[in-house]
């Protein structure tokens, strides 16, 4: 099915959308940037042959709209072409990049990375309180909304009730793939994936990361001399031992504050001070010596 340049008319609601370009494709469908003919505004339209996944995602978007950090859902409809029915949802178009693209172009410091993870974690926490897990958490599913200065989590197709099986996952963030647990949905499934997400943000090398073992990762963090407490917390997160998801986020928040504190009189600043004092000292003694030499010469 080629949609580029076409106009998609909804079977039930009759709204018309002009397809501008492809935004992305996943296991279940494709997402296009579209122009709503009536209002002349841009939206993202996700279309698929899978009635199950589209209906479910629309349901999740509506059900969890109040928890924030997710895109607005506009409508759900069908599209018929050559006697075949496709199912689609229209959601708010987010002007910006996903986190994976964003970190390649922008150099974020550790404090900023931790901050982003806290925002995502807060949203997932609320899901947990309602008896669901997010499931398919990854950098590609986090959008940096430049226009509104917000972070939004897209693709809610992986949300499942606690106790059922995980339906959608990405190997890098999937604890079963790492031999760190099952694909039965519990809040610790999300704990593993959010920990791995922060590790990925720190390492910035996905292909290398996917070939490492959990032990390699911990060693890698230690070698990188990342904040010691954060390294310890990430280890506990990946191992999911004696740590709940909400506790992980709480600890991150505490650290977020100290990260700022350390920045003010951080290691680097102190080194600078030492170096500057040293140079200033030698300059002064050089000048004194120069004066003494000149005096003797006279």
């Amino acid at each position: 099915m080629k949609l580029h340049g076409k106009i998609i008319t909804g079977k039930w609601n009759g709204n018309k959308y002009k397809v501008i370009g492809l935004l992305g494709k996943g296991g279940t469908g494709r997402v296009y940037k579209v122009l709503d003919i009536k209002s002349n505004s841009y939206y993202a339209l996700k279309i698929s042959e899978d009635i199950q996944s589209i209906t479910k995602e629309s349901d999740m978007l509506n059900r969890f709209i109040y928890i924030g950090s997710i895109p607005l859902s506009i409508e759900l409809d069908d599209y018929e072409e050559d006697g075949k029915i496709y199912y689609f949802i229209v959601i708010e178009y987010i002007k910006g990049e996903n986190l994976r693209e964003y970190i390649i172009k922008n150099n974020l410091n550790l404090k900023e990375l931790v901050g982003i993870v806290i925002i995502i974690g807060e949203m997932i926490n609320k899901l947990h309180n309602k008896g669901f897990i997010f499931g398919d958490l990854k950098l590609e599913n986090v959008m940096i909304d430049r226009e509104n200065g917000e972070i939004k989590v897209i693709d809610l197709g992986g949300i499942v009730p606690i106790g059922s099986s995980v339906k959608e996952f990405t190997p890098l963030y999937d604890r079963a793939k790492w031999n760190m647990g099952s694909r039965r949905a519990d809040t610790k499934y999300d704990l593993f994936s959010i920990s791995m997400m922060l590790v990925n943000l720190i390492f910035k090398n996905e292909s290398k990361l996917s070939n490492m073992s959990i032990r390699d990762i911990i060693h890698g963090l230690k070698r990188k001399k990342i904040d010691k407490e954060l390294t310890k917390l990430l280890q506990r997160g990946l191992e999911q031992k004696k740590l709940e998801f909400h506790e992980f986020i709480k600890e991150l928040k505490k650290m977020y504050k100290t990260l700022r504190y350390k920045k003010k009189i951080g290691y680097n600043n102190r080194v600078n001070l030492i170096i500057n004092t040293f140079f200033l000292g030698s300059l002064i003694s050089f000048v004194i010596m120069l004066i003494v030499v000149i005096k003797i010469m006279q």
Binding site: W12, T55, K56, D59, L76, D77, D78
Partner: peptide, 20 residues
């Protein structure tokens, strides 16, 4: 397919439960 999209979610939820 012939049910209004908005009214499908209960059936879809049911199908997901059965698949589990």
């Amino acid at each position: 397919d012939e049910i209004r999209p908005k009214r499908r979610n209960k059936f879809v939820e049911y199908i997901e439960n059965v698949s589990d």
